[in-house]
Amino acid sequence: LLDSAAHVALAALTALSWLGAGSLVLAPLRSSGDRILDLLNRIGAGALAFALLTFAAGWVGLLYAEAYVPLAALAASSGLVAGARLLRGARLPVDLSRWQLVLAALLGLYVVLAVVATAAPISSADALLYHAAGPELYEQRHRLVETPWVWHSYQPYTVELLVTDGFLLWDSVQGAFAVLLLGLAGLAAVVGAAGRLAGRAAALLAGAVLAAAPFALWTTSSTFVEPGLVLTMALAGWNLVEFARRGDAASLALAGLFAGAAAGIKYQGALAAVLLAAAAAVVLRRRLEPRTALVFAAPAVVVALPWYVKNAVLTGNPVYPFVFGGLNPEAERAAAESYESYGQGESPLDLLLLPVRLLADADEFDRGEFASPLYLLFAPLALLGAWPRRPLVATWAAGLVYLLAWFFGSQQLRFLAPLGPAFAFLAALGILALTAQRRVGRAVTVAVVTGALATGLAVSLIYTAQFVPVVTGRESEREFLTEKTSYYEGIDWLNRNLPPGARVAIGHVFILYVDRPALWWSSDALTTTAGPSESRRFFRRYRITHAQIFDRDVARIRQLEYAGARRIARVTVHAVTSRTLAEIGPPETVVVYALPRARRARPATPSAQASGVSSAASSRERRPADVLNAGSSARLCRAAASARASPTGTTKPFTPSSTSSRAAPTASVATSASPAAAASLSTMPQGSERDGRTNTSACA
C-alpha cells in the first residue's frame, strides 16, 4: 500500500514537472485568458517536451535516473509555482444541481478506480510486449534500442518515452502512471472544453461519456498510448475553437503543436491530425491563408517529424512497416492475420451493420462490449440542437472518414480513441438536445443514460476489484502475475534458474517480466523457414544463450538444433483467458533450451556486419555509436523484399521504438510453428479481458 501511495505521489510530481516544463516552453505565448486551458496546454506541452528530451537523451545514450530525476524535480518545483499562480483565486463550482453532483462524483470514483488499476503490476499484453518492455530496455541500456523483433516498436513513441521517464523515476508501475496522467489530463480537457462551449451540464456529460465506462478505464490504466491521443486531440480541438473565437496565432500554433503531438504518438494520430486540420480548414475557410496554415503546420511538423525521420533513417520507410513495406513476407502475413482477426468483416454489409454490431455484438472489436453506448446513441442527436451547424457537420464528416479508415484497417475499438473527445462532446450535446424535446425525450434520455452509466460502473467495479489485493499488499506480485499474465510460470522459471548473464528468446509476447535481456522470437526476428546458417546468425546477433518456446513449435526446435542447443527443462504453463473472471486455458508446455557457450560471446554490434547483411550499411553506420543495433533481421527482410529500394531501405538498425499496438501475439505465433501452435496461440489471452489477441492493427 505504501508503494502505491508513493507511486501516486511521484505521479503528482511528474504532472508538476510537465507543468513546469510546459510553462517554460510556452512562456513566449500569451495566455488564452482561460486558466484551465492554460493549465492543460502547459501540462500537455510539458509532457511533449519531456518525451522529446527523452528521445534526444536516448539517442545519445544519456538515459540515466541521475540526469532525469534532478531535471524532473527542478521542473516540478517550477510547475508548483506556475500552478499556484494559475489557480490562484480559482473556486470549485458550488452550485451544481443534484444530477450534476452525481455525475461529478461518478467521475471522481472512476479516477479512483483508474488509480487502483494502474497501481497494480502491468498485465496487459501489448504493454508486456512493447509499451512497457521497450521503455524497460531503454532504461537498462541508458539509450534507445532498436527492437526489430516487434515491428510495433517503429510507431511513434512519445507516450512510451514518458513511460521510460517513469522507469527512470522508479519502475514499470511509475511508467504506467505517466499514461494515467495523460488520460486524466485528457478527461480534464474534454470537460473543460465542453464547459466553455456549452456549459456545465455538457461538461459533466461529456466527461461521463468519455471516461465513465469500463472500456475507458481499461485503456487508461493498461499502459496503452490511447490516453495520449485523447489528450492531444482534445487540446488540439480546444485550441482550434479558441482560434476560431479570437483569431489569435498562439491558439492556432498550440492547436498545431498538439495535432503534431498526436501524430507523434501513433500512426493513426497522424491521420486524426490531418482530418482535424481538414475539418478546421472547412469551418474556418474564410481565414484560411498561407500564413495561418503555416502557423498551424509548422509546430505540428516539428514535433511529429523526429519519429518519421528516425524510421526513414533506420529502415528507409518513414512509416515502417506500412505503405512502403519492410517486413519479410512471413511477418507481413502474420501481421495482416493479426489485424484481420478483429471485427466482423469489411464487406459493404458489414459496414452497414457496424452500428448495430457496436451496440449489440461488439466483443469482436477487442472488448468493444465494454465501451460506452452513449457515443453512438447520442452523438448523432447533436444535430437536433440549435448549435452552429457547420462545425458539427465538419466534425461528423472528419469522424466518419476516420471511422472508414479504421473499418478497413484493424477493427480494434480502442484505435478510435482520437475520436473520443469530439464525439463525447457531441454525445453530450445530443443528450441535452433530446432532454429538451418534450417529456418523453427527457424520460428516455434519463433512463438510457442512467442505465448505461450504472451498467458500466458495475462492470468497472468488478474489473477493478481484481487489482485490489495486490495493490493493498494482500497478494504478492508473483501470485498476481501468475494469475493475470499468460505463461508467467515459464517466465518465473527463467528468472529463478537462468544464470545472470543469460539472454533469452521467448516464443510468446509476454516478455516484460523476464529478468534477463529477452526478445520475442517472432517471424520479424527470424522466419520459421530460416535454415541453419541464418538461424545461427540470429543467435549470434542477439547473443542468445537460452530460448523458451512451446514444445509443439517444431520450426523453432529445429532452428535450435541447428545451433546445437540442448533442452534443459520443461515447464507447464497456462494462458490467462480472462483476468477479471480468473479464467485460464488448458495446461501447455514450454521447453527451455541452452545454446552452446561458444556461440554466445560475440558482441552484437552494428548490425550490418554482425548480421552479415553487408548491403545495408549506409545510414546506420553514421548513427551515434551507442545506439544498439539489433536490426538485422528486419533489415534482411527488407533487403530481400526490396527491390524497392533506396539504399537506405536496407538499413535498419537502431533502436527505437515505437509502435503501438498491434499485433503481437497472434502474429508471430501464427506463423511460427505448427498449426496446432498457431491455433492455440491465436487464442491466447493477453493479459486482459478475454481473448488474447494482442493488438495488431493500428494503422489505419
Binding site: L376, L434, R438
Partner: peptide
C-alpha cells in the same frame, strides 16, 4: 415524422440492442 420522434426511437432501439449485449454477456457468465 418529427426529428425528435426519430431520435427517441433511435435511442430506444439502440438501448435495446445494448441491453441484449449486456444480457448475453451475463448469460455467458452464469
Amino acid at each position: 415524422v418529427r426529428a425528435s420522434t426519430v431520435a427517441v426511437v433511435w435511442v430506444l432501439v439502440g438501448a435495446a440492442l445494448y441491453a441484449i449485449q449486456i444480457l448475453r454477456r451475463l448469460a455467458e457468465l452464469a
